[in-house]
């Protein structure tokens, strides 16, 4: 049977891992290559890099990061952040990325997703969705797409948007709950379930992981095909191997 995937995510700013990574046996915890190597040896199923570089001068650095990692870590690599044109996609794939995640650019120009998937194939285009609950207490659940780190509403319904992106060719959905991101209280399971049931392609749950039970819940209750987490792995609270053993003990199929 296909294993549920665990995907550590690294925020990279001007070529360095930020948000803190603490491993006792790592010389330079800001070096994305070293961190990626470490996650690979712990059994990560994929690695995602989120480029949060603000200055356009430093944007080229993520390309070198991907090139270096791809030369020695032989598992799938995804790069997101600032992917706006087919040329951006091509550059990342040529550098050694296997998939790119398109977020804001998809909202402002959905045709870009269609163009990228027809040119490069659905298998390498992930659409990242940042969703926030907009329904009140007692109302039927409803989520809206937000941009700019959850600050700007778009008026787009998250479920309809996910379906549309799959129609446009997205091979996978990376779903982040902006309500849960950074809270460590667990995924928005209702949102995860709603999106996972609404689309035929795999869904990666993201936002809110604080412990290993949350990973299990995301898969079992949320119906996610993969779970993405950053801080619980960065601060070495848990290793990826520990997370997988925990999930396996709860009956989740994982690659050990």
């Amino acid at each position: 049977m296909l294993a549920k995937r665990i995907i550590p995510c690294l925020d990279v700013d001007a070529g360095r891992v930020v948000k803190g990574v603490k491993f006792v046996d790592i010389r330079d915890a800001g070096d994305p290559v070293e961190v990626a190597r470490r996650y690979n040896s712990e059994g990560a199923d994929e690695i995602t890099f989120l480029d949060i570089t603000a200055s356009s001068d430093d944007r080229e650095t993520i390309v070198h990061v991907v090139e270096q990692v791809a030369g020695e870590v032989f598992i799938p690599l995804t790069v997101g952040g600032g992917i706006r044109t087919s040329e951006d996609v091509r550059r990342m794939l040529n550098a050694g990325a296997d998939k790119v995640a398109i977020n804001t650019a998809a909202v402002f120009n959905p045709e870009f997703v269609r163009e990228a998937t027809s040119r490069f194939g659905s298998q390498c285009i992930v659409v990242a969705i940042d969703a926030k609950r907009t329904s009140g207490e007692g109302e039927p659940a409803k989520w809206e797409i937000f941009t700019h780190g959850g600050r700007k509403p778009t008026g787009l319904d998250a479920i309809k948007w996910a379906r549309k992106m799959v129609e446009y060719g997205a091979g996978e959905i990376l779903l982040t709950s902006m309500d849960r991101d950074g809270t460590k209280i667990g995924f928005d399971l209702e949102l995860t379930r709603a999106i996972s049931d609404a689309v035929t392609v795999p869904v990666i749950a993201s936002g809110g992981v604080g412990n290993l039970q949350h990973l299990v819940d995301g898969v079992v209750q949320g119906g996610a095909d993969a779970v993405l987490a950053a801080s619980i792995f960065h601060f070495a609270e848990y290793s990826i191997e520990e997370a997988k053993r925990f999930m396996a003990a709860q009956g989740v199929e994982v690659r050990l």
């Binding site: 296909l2 294993a3 995937r5 199923d45 035929t200 392609v201 795999p202 869904v203 095909d225």
Partner: peptide, 8 residues
């Protein structure tokens, strides 16, 4: 899910 994506 289709595509099958992941480790089998």
């Amino acid at each position: 899910k289709i595509p099958q994506m992941g480790w089998n």
